[in-house]
Design a protein around this nucleic acid. Sequence first.
RNA 1: UGGGCUAUGGUGUAAUGGUAGCACAAGACAUUUUGGUCGUCUUAGUCCUGGUUCGAACCCGGGUAGCCCAACCA
Length: 602
Amino acid sequence: MAEINITEQEEKKSLNFIEQRVKADLAEGKNGGRLQTRFPPEPNGYLHIGHAKAIAMDFGVAQKFGGVCNLRMDDTNPQKEDTEYVEAIERDIKWLGFQWGKVCYASDYFQDLWDFAEWCIQQGRAYVDEQTSEEIAAQKGTPTEPGTNSPYRDRPAEESLKLFREMNSGNVEPGKMILRAKIDMASPNMHFRDPIMYRVLNMEHWRTGNKWNAYPMYDFTHGQSDYLEGVTHSICTLEFVPHHELYDLFVTWIKEWKGDKDDIEDNRPRQFEFNKLNLNYTLMSKRNLLILTKEGVVNGWDDPRMPTICGIRRRGYSPQAILNFIDKIGYTTFDALNDIKLMEAACREDLNTRAIRVSAVVNPLKLIIDNYPEGLVEEMKAINNPELRDVEGNTITEGNTHIIHFSRDLYIEQEDFMEDGGKKFMRLGPGKEVRLKNGYIIACSDEQDEQGNFKCIEKDENGNIICVHATYDPDSKSGMPGADRKIKGKTLHWVSCQHSIPCEVRNYECLWTCENPRDAIKQYEKENGVRGIDAMRPFLNPDSLTINKHALIEEFAKELPALSYLQFQRIGYYNVDPDSTPEHLIFNKTVGLKDTWQKGGK
RNA sequence: UGGGCUAUGGUGUAAUGGUAGCACAAGACAUUUUGGUCGUCUUAGUCCUGGUUCGAACCCGGGUAGCCCAACCA
């Protein structure tokens, strides 16, 4: 029995239109008060962020109202499907934090579906058609013109039955015969024009082996599987709205076949549709993602630029970040194009609470503290996560710190020093004073030599700044009373030369330069007569991946496990790539920190 | 041009015949040992047009625009 187990406040705030329907159905006692959903991926590829939205709905609604959600592999087309995807799908759903009741397969119902199809033939509701696919297509009509009946439409049931069994013998060539439902060739709904129930494939199925040679189509499988499995709410995306009526019809038939006398309105699976996820600057279709991997545009399905769950995971998103995002965009029946910035915002929001702060210098500039004793090394305490707070709102320090080393020779970020930064530039430069995070207050002198060159700056022969000199205030050590004094400058991150490790930093941007790559590619294909990768190239962002092999990071980061959530302070969120080793550290940029300086300040 | 669906600030979403609200984005201020976070404020909206009603984003008619449907894919 399903239970409504959410508080009224929560309910008011967050029930989307499908949840409202589910709640109402439960209240009315439909389906005997049961709630069962299913997530039905076809195991022919990797799950992407669009699937995550469906997962959050299918599993989420079951969770919220005390129902159960099964994972059902929609494996009715053995030409495309493979067991390798099943594992990946299961892994991704688990990673998102959901649990299924059981794992089912559409192929579990092949025998039932077959028997049901035979019954349909005997009932005069189905027939074997021996026309070519071209002939059938021609007879189908168009959205504005009715179709015409197949010459085989009224053949005797016994004849169809005999041929149907032959279809599964392996002796019928694919394309020679199909089983069609006898419905209405003039229906304004194209799906009612004698839809195909079974086709011959003569192909081994990864689960059922060689038992079947003819396989059922989606429309003749989905609703029936729902019915046989006990699904009450079959939730899918909007493109299945035109299938809705046919879904209901086949469910009605199969209930009849089963001799199920329950009231049709109250005890049957019902389909509900919501808008699928569209993200700007993102391409979601499996077909096109496959091209990207095959052509080497990306490095596999889990490339951090891919919208796949595994790609997003490797990029450094947490499951909660994804779920937060999905929660923000909501479920409606409007075909929306969501802004990737909202996803990034949801990510920052989540990672802010869980990322460990580390110091990393991405573009190092040497900084020498002239008055700091040579050879001296001090251990400084660095807070792992300032958002970890006690009930009073104070940052918890116990168990929330790590050690960072301070010495005379440091690296700071190149962009944190400017010879003539101007008044608004609050970082380091001649005559400027800044604080080194968890360290000391330092200052550069504005003394100049006879040529008018600043004494604190060392340049190479090309005039590039290669080293800067500063002096520190020994009383200003972080944590000491002298550190309290206010200064004009900002707080900079830094690493110690001797105590930092070189690492590789991979920065990612959108793969696409246009908001809606799907449409752009489609149009380009049309206008230029090219297909696939050639139609995609004009819209690919050449800078979607930039690798920086000269970054430096504090030693603490050396032994962190793969996929650890990090924040490079003042730069962005990063995570440890699965290929990273202590000998060759690799970090992926998940998303940058908000930067009101670069945006507004300059 | 057949059928189905949709339309609320730049984006997404709420209000289910009774005060158009929230988040993101954009901008400003304040705070800050992250130009982050947190906080305050500003900008900005019911596609058009008729009707029903005391009252319409919501109901109805007519436009307009967009999406889905003519796979032996799902």
